[in-house]
Simulated scan of single mutants.
Amino acid sequence: MRPAPLGGRVLVARLDSMGDVLLAGPAVRAVAETAAAVTLLVAPGQRATAELLPGVDAVVEFTAPWVVLDPPPVEPAAVQALVTTLAAGAFDAALVLTSYHQSPLPLALLLRMAGVGWVGAASEDYPGSLLDLRHRPADGLPEPERALQLARAAGFGSAASSAALAVTGPLPDPRPLAGPGPYVVLHPGAAVPARATTAAHARALVDALVAAGHRVVVTGGPGDRALTATAAGGGGRDLGGRLSLRELAGVLAGAEAVVAVNTGPAHLAAAVGTPVVSLFAPVVAATAWAPYGVPVALLGDQDAPCRGTRARTCPVPGHPCLTGIAAADVVAAVTRVAAPAAAVGLEREVPA
């Protein structure tokens, strides 16, 4: 292994979803400890997520057909445009962060074409001359630790570099959005349908939380408006599709607890330090993908037939791994993990 050049311009790539970009944060901070500048390469639509991460100086967007869900055809002009952009960046080194089932080698090839002199990644496939560091991560690591391990193997950061998630502050005051007084957030939707719960189940959770004395704020993306409207019903405050990412971070930071399916906002809640009740469908492993670094109550049948399949739609009628979670169990879990809301507008401390 040829060591990475330290102190120069470094590109870090994480080319999939919001949650994946947030979980790359500890590796990005480790790189930033010794790099002169850090550019984060992300999928289109993830610029706002990248800009939340401490240590990011610039952001480049690219649709990687070998990574994204519902991939478009490979467009030679788009690939050449990326190579041109990367060449103009004059990067001394690059780290390609991937999930265990993804290959870093297509991007490594483009980085070589762009003249990047050192490239590191975790790879099970033989990389030939595409990688200077072919890292073999330990099995079973939470995703933030897996990414940080790669950065350390490349020589970035130190043994003291933290795997805790973090975002840049200050965050917006949540009170104009969430209303006055303590509250619990429910985020029932996800881009992958197999990880989302149903509208009826979400409504039952809101009703139970309200009956237990909680004020409930329901959040979701623009495509979740029907889901959040049903969930909020007459007892919750519906913010579905109404928040920027930084506003969402502020609302999550102000909550006593966040009840969320396995989706990006669950990791955003962890990044702002809020406890999470995780409604976790086992299509991927909770050991790797559960919210990290905060108090977490993991609910859902982790031995369901869909376990480990990475299914995008639930193969079991009725989606029982999530809809079978009793509302009373969610209320009890909120009680276990809830902490006083963070001071409004308080900038979260970035871990060393």
Rank of each mutant, 00 (worst) to 15 (best):
D20R: 10
P351H: 10
P3D: 11
R195H: 01
D139Q: 05
G233C: 09
L130M: 05
L52A: 10
L243E: 08
G19R: 15
T168H: 11
P174W: 03
A178D: 01
T85K: 03
E61G: 06
L186Q: 03
R134P: 04
A114N: 02
E145K: 05
S103N: 09
G128N: 09
A24M: 14
L53C: 10
A232N: 01
L322M: 13
A178P: 00
T323L: 09
L150H: 03
T274A: 10
V217M: 01
L252E: 14
A352P: 15
E51G: 12
G128P: 05
P106C: 02
H267R: 12
A249M: 14
R175N: 02
V261C: 14
V68M: 04
P172T: 12
V261A: 08
G120L: 02
L97A: 00
G115E: 05
A159I: 00
A199R: 11
V337N: 01
T198R: 01
A304W: 04
A338N: 09
V42S: 10
G45I: 10
C314R: 09
A30D: 14
A147I: 01
V10K: 08
P127E: 12
A154L: 02
P351R: 07
V216C: 00
E256F: 09
W289D: 15
G240F: 08
M1Q: 12
P295K: 09
T230W: 06
D20I: 15
P26M: 14
G155P: 06
A88H: 02
L171G: 09
G324I: 12
L268Q: 13
P72Y: 10
V28E: 14
D20A: 14
D207V: 11
S278A: 15
V258F: 09
R47G: 09
L205F: 00
V251K: 06
W66M: 01
L133R: 01
G221Q: 02
A338E: 11
P3W: 13
L97S: 00
T274C: 06
